[in-house]
């Protein structure tokens, strides 16, 4: 309950930074999908959950961890593409809020499906990488790995979006969805690719999360609201904004959690979020559409 500027405080700050990497990665996929397709997948965290189960069972079935992670990424990428094709495409022209709610239906569906298929037990891979100790502070290796991979993934995505033909087409669609089809870009194909990439990012996040967190059907409810908050705070569709917002939010959680109880860290973060949005509705880095 004490909150002094000591070594534990520094530890909390640094752990917050490590958490920011994961949250930024989670927000990245959602942001990409929103920026390009203009749809919010409220079930995004549930896709991560599916990926975590996929990796868990693949690894338990004898697949090496790295291959299992790759399988998880592909699985969720496929899930993203299917989600777009089956659920999102029919409502692309209806009210934005219907698009948000339809993925809410997917949220219920996936959560219940996972409960039925895998039960309500908490599962984990049981892999412990140990932790590094620095001047009385300890950081688990899995968090450091997560942070590094998340940063690398963001860099790769950025290179993809700025250097490749498809990447440039994706950004062009995000800027003007009326003109681009006239320029010979197949909008439907771009949407599908974007959904798969967004799913793949969720899969990557899942691969990193199985190292740190227990898997259970409701895990999406723990992370989902946090991810939306980060996306909106950074400015929906802004990739850099998402990163900065992830940093801010995770520091609130880490410091609040070390000074008070965990819930209060989250509660303060949500309060901060609401206040910022009242002042800057478009988010920290968002352009107003």
């Amino acid at each position: 309950m004490d909150c002094q500027l000591d070594i534990f405080f520094l530890e909390a700050v640094l752990n917050g930074l490590l958490l920011a990497g994961l949250l930024a990665l989670l927000a990245l996929g959602l942001n990409l999908i929103f920026g390009v397709i203009d749809v919010v997948w409220i079930c995004y965290a549930e896709l991560v959950m599916i990926g975590m189960y996929g990796i868990y069972y693949a690894h338990k079935g004898g697949v090496p961890l790295l291959l299992a992670a790759l399988f998880g990424i592909l699985l969720v990428a496929l899930a993203g593409a299917v989600l777009h094709q089956v659920v999102i495409r029919p409502v692309l022209d209806s009210a934005p809020i219907n698009q948000l709610l339809v993925t809410g239906g997917v949220l219920f569906f996936l959560q219940a499906a996972a409960t039925m298929a895998f039960g309500v037990d908490f599962r984990n891979l049981g892999i412990r990488f140990g932790s590094i100790t620095l001047a009385d502070m300890s950081f688990s290796y899995s968090r450091i790995i997560t942070f590094g991979v998340a940063l690398a993934a963001m860099l790769v995505l950025w290179l993809f979006l700025s250097r490749t033909y498809v990447g440039i087409a994706i950004r062009a669609i995000a800027q003007d969805r009326q003109i681009m089809p006239l320029m010979g870009v197949d909008q439907r194909r771009i949407y599908l690719i974007t959904s798969a990439i967004g799913g793949g990012l969720a899969g990557l996040a899942a691969a990193l999360m199985v190292l740190q967190y227990d898997i259970y059907p409701q895990i999406g409810l723990q992370f989902g609201p946090l991810i939306f908050m980060i996306c909106v705070l950074g400015g929906l569709g802004s990739l850099i904004g998402g990163f900065v917002a992830a940093f801010i939010i995770s520091e609130f959680i880490a410091i609040g959690g070390s000074c008070f109880a965990t819930e209060w860290g989250y509660a303060i973060a949500f309060l901060f979020f609401m206040v910022v949005i009242f002042i800057r509705p478009q988010g920290l880095f968002g352009g107003r559409s």
Partner: peptide, 14 residues
Amino acid sequence: DTLIYGLLLILFII
């Protein structure tokens, strides 16, 4: 029941 509920909601909205 949640599973069917979610499925129906998707169908309803579409």
